[in-house]
Amino acid sequence: MAKKVFERPKYLKKSVFHYCPGCGHSIIHRLVAELLDELDIGKKAICVPPAGCAVLAYNYLDVDMGEAPHGRGAAVATGLKRTLPDKIVFTYQGDGDIAAIGTAETIHAANRGENITVIFVNNGVYGMTGGQMAPTTLEGQNSTTTPGGRDPARDGSPLDLSQMLAIAKGSVYIERTAVNSPKNIRRTKRAIKKAFKVQMAGLGFSLVEVLSPCPTNWKMTPVDAAKWVEEHVTKIFPLKVIKDKAGKVT
């Protein structure tokens, strides 16, 4: 008798993802949903979704959700977690949300050591609004607002927010991963698992930056976009544990 070894996780609602073919968001949603079950925290989890492509995350993740204004996820999560310290509070934010309009909220939440978890999805572009330059867009990378590619002299250079957050004393665990290959997807899951465990142990601010392909706005096939992450994005944003003050968390 064959056994099902892989199926839809129970914290994913039955709805069909609105994301484009090959989008990394839905993979990350699934990983989060799997972990909510595996760590048995789904019943006490509160998610703060962003503005951007993942604004509709409440259609997919079957947990309590409180929508934040664009960029303010870390501040809203602060209010939630301080009021309900026993719950698991996490934000889900894109690169525009967290590293441009919400930079201040994020840095100060990390600096205060807020005991929250941030899932930071970096696809180098404003997806929902149609592919404008994000703070994380690579030098030379095309976007609808950087004709001829991002020019550092005109547009600035990609911002490494995770590195900045690592400087803040209150941040405990920061790792950068990707969802462009099966190996990296597994690594992403392990990282998010650790981030949740850091929060469960009450240690402080945890964040996983996930490099994610955006085939539609990059104007590539999903397979090419996955390769592009490997060949270009990880050169500027290398995959690594950026900070780990927690060590082994059980």
């Binding site: 993802f17 839905s26 993979i27 997807i185």
Partner: peptide, 13 residues
């Protein structure tokens, strides 16, 4: 694991 749309179920004996 790779499928973004959770469209694949896997069975093993």
């Amino acid at each position: 694991i790779t499928c973004p749309d959770v469209a694949i179920e896997v069975y093993r004996e």
